[in-house]
Amino acid sequence: MKEKKTLSYMDSVHRDGTIWNMVVMTLLIMFPVVVGVIFQAVPDWAGVGKGLLATAPMYWAVGVIEVITFYPMLGAGGSYLSFVTGNISNLKLPCALNALESNEVKAQSEEGEIISTISIATSSIVTTLIIIFGVALIIPLTPLLENPVLDPAFAQLLPALFGALGVVFISKNWKIAIAPIVLMLILFVFVPALDSSMVGIMVPVGVVFTIVVSRLMYKKGMLG
């Protein structure tokens, strides 16, 4: 009873987040097991092995880097939720950044933690409901969603998102933005291997490079 009283809000976020994430992870792992039991099917173990060997090492490495990179930006509650619901860099993180900016709060403050969690939870609920709606109405919606007229609009979602978001953050932090933007422009324009599928891997590179440059500028008193 005494322990319950002294549990801080942040401690309760970690406790509850851990319980929820473990429950969801167990359910996810159980999905193929239950399907296998119901339909009396066993996986093709060689296929599982080869498939995992080709997929898991890269995505596990990316997963570790993403947690370390995104956690300080998403906050605790936002991280527990985002790493369950996914679509972090193209939806949850921009949503949280926009909410923090509109409310003029810092991500590391308690207000920032709350605003970030509220925006990510709302975004997750809306996303889940829209997907449910889309799945329920998949037959009538298919001609609309596969309409070739709308194709280019959805193909350009990320440039449209980061144009608006970028102008706000870059204008406020232009001194530290110059070096990483120049680096990324050079890399993406002149290195052919860096195509659109590589942006997820380049986010941690951009973050680490910007931190290093900012630290140097901070030490030299250039950010005063």
Binding site: A177, I181, G206
Partner: peptide, 10 residues
Amino acid sequence: IGMISAFVGY
């Protein structure tokens, strides 16, 4: 900014 710069490059 690091995250946004990666997307600007992309």
